[in-house]
Design a protein around this nucleic acid. Structure first.
Length: 357
DNA sequence: AAGTTCTTATTAC
DNA sequence: CTAACGGTAATAAGAACTT
């Protein structure tokens, strides 16, 4: 299908909005969902903050200690994953009804390919008429979700996943933004390069040093030049700056690795803390592996030390293994090697298993 | 020299 | 005082190693 219409839906400040819904007494107050702030000594990060909290400068992924500094009187709540999972299922069951071409991105995000739904049925209509139909559909979807779940969402619509996603980001909260093919450049040009999915802080910093801040400037750089600087992703970035994205809605990717990690309350070197924690991690990863018919192709152990220096050690196997004793033996050996080579205090330990099938 | 494995970095939600 | 930074997963690049 050449001319597609893709919809991206993103729930507004999802975790925090659910908490507001469940606890009306929080309405009007700053709400921060994430790690325990522990009077400002917490080690985790903010998962989601409502818009009132954001006015204090609090945002996702911010250290919870900083969030506490910015607004100690905010309502701080732990992540209630079970609840959000359930609400997510309810919502996604609604979203799915609007097109069979459905792709779940995370608990609060999904794509729909509306092409079949909205382009084909009336052959006499133009591709542009279909955008109108898409917009009507989006309004209905938002309304249905709000009626049934009392939660607001934002929808973006465009000719591909990239534009749909970027449109929804610009439109939130409680928004709807439709970008037709002839509006792509106008939409992208004034946005910061970091608005492109795949351009994070590091890439943006390199671009900034080249005097490139806006997507308009980025789109003027030759693809070959970007490829030179950023390698394979440079090519993608060049396409994205021009609004080009051929990726399909749906393909559910198979699991390639399963892992667990844990950050200690304090940096430590105490074997009475480190090893029992690691045993637990191994057991949990093994549990997770049992949920599918996985075989172990490789084991990698991660240690983050004081000062955030992160080291990993891995071992892969020609013929896949599948027994707990082997996993334990290999993982412990790798951890020992890491700890011997690095004498600093340990902040985090983790285990990741490469799997097949 | 080529192919595989290991290590680190970056990104996203 | 000047940083503070979770957990899970994918992917890419280059180093380090086998063969």
């Amino acid at each position: 299908m050449k001319n597609r219409i893709i919809l991206h839906i993103d729930m507004d400040y999802f975790f925090a909005q659910i908490e507001e819904r469940e606890n009306p007494q929080f309405k009007g107050k700053p709400v921060v969902v994430g790690a325990d702030p522990k009077e400002g000594k917490g080690r985790g990060v903010v998962s989601t903050a409502n818009y009132i909290a954001r006015k204090y400068g609090i945002h996702s992924a911010m250290p919870i200690s900083k969030a506490y500094q910015l607004c100690p009187k905010a309502v701080f709540l732990p992540v209630n994953h079970e609840l959000y999972q359930k609400v997510s299922e309810n919502i996604m069951n609604i979203v799915k009804k609007y097109s069979p071409r459905f792709e779940l991105v995370s608990l609060d995000e999904a794509y729909l390919d509306l092409s079949e739904t909205v382009v084909k049925p009336l052959l006499w209509q133009s591709y542009y008429d279909s955008y109108k139909k898409g917009e009507v559909l989006a309004k209905k979807l938002k309304k249905e979700i709000f009626k049934k779940e009392k939660l607001t969402s934002t929808v973006g619509i465009g000719p591909n996943k990239l534009i749909a996603k970027m449109a929804s980001v610009e439109a939130k909260p409680d928004g709807l933004l439709v970008i037709k093919p002839n509006q792509i450049q106008k939409f992208l040009n004034p946005l910061d390069v970091e608005k492109i999915p795949g351009v994070g802080p590091k890439t943006a910093e390199v671009l900034r040093k080249l005097g490139v801040n806006k997507i308009k400037e980025l789109s003027k750089i030759k693809k070959s030049k970007l490829k030179e600087i950023f390698g394979k992703v440079g090519k993608d970035i060049a396409d994205k700056a021009r609004g080009i994205d051929k990726s399909e809605v749906c393909p559910k990717t198979e699991v390639k690795s399963v892992g667990k990690e844990h950050t200690f309350d304090k940096d430590t070197r105490d074997p009475e803390i480190i090893f029992p924690t690691f045993e637990k991690i191994i057991k949990e990863v093994w549990q997770e592996l049992q949920r599918g018919d996985f075989s172990i192709q490789g084991v990698s152990v991660i240690c983050r030390f004081q000062g955030f220096e992160t080291k990993s050690k891995q071992k892969s196997f020609e013929k896949a293994k599948s027994n707990l004793e082997f996993l334990e033996k290999t993982a412990k050996k790798l951890l020992l090697e890491l700890l011997l080579k690095n004498q600093n205090l340990v902040r985090l330990i983790g285990l990741r298993v490469k799997v097949e099938e």
